[in-house]
């Protein structure tokens, strides 16, 4: 089995991609997200952080052209307060609608820091359904989409 080095770095930091590395970058503002999808990153993790929709159709279009997957972490919802969680669900629902329209790959991850934050696949699927995916798409987002990304190094499945 190949070894993949998972790299998570702040946007704009110097990043050298090796043969077996998977470039995952955390999103932030609209400008940061745009720069990340234009860079060599393969996965844009948590493009929405504050509850505002910081992704537009241009960012999703570039992500589609460059084969960048958009990853949503469960942890972001788990640690948020009730109000912020509602805002996050609203913003991510719109992002999922955009991704489904543009056919950009969506990935659901737990992003757990410890065992208490880890969740079962069924619960990640439930989050996907809550955000607007259907159960089949949600299953794809936790299993096939990341596997295809690792296998093809960021290309389309």
């Amino acid at each position: 089995m190949d070894y993949y080095d998972l790299v998570t770095e702040a946007p704009h930091s110097g990043f050298k991609q090796s043969k077996h590395s998977l470039a995952i970058r955390r999103g932030g503002s609209l400008d940061e997200n745009r720069k990340i999808v234009r860079s060599k990153a393969q996965v844009l993790l948590n493009p929405i952080t504050s509850g505002k929709l910081t992704v537009d159709s241009a960012v999703v279009e570039i992500a589609k052209q460059r084969g960048v997957a958009i990853a949503i972490s469960f942890r972001q919802f788990l640690v948020a307060s009730r109000f912020k969680r509602a805002r996050l669900i609203s913003a991510y629902s719109k992002l999922i609608q955009l991704c489904l329209k543009m056919k950009v790959r969506v990935i659901l991850v737990s992003d757990a820091r410890d065992a208490w934050e880890a969740r079962a696949p069924e619960q990640l699927i439930a989050l996907g359904v809550l955000l607007g995916l259907n159960p089949q798409q949600a299953k794809w987002a936790i299993a096939k989409a990341p596997a295809a990304l690792l296998k093809r190094g960021g290309g389309y499945a």
Partner: peptide, 26 residues
Amino acid sequence: LYDMLAAMAFISSVAGARAKCDILCV
């Protein structure tokens, strides 16, 4: 069903103690 499962996934504490609720079967 999925709303209920998602709600159960969001449980992180019970009476001040860290907790999680796992789904066994449906």
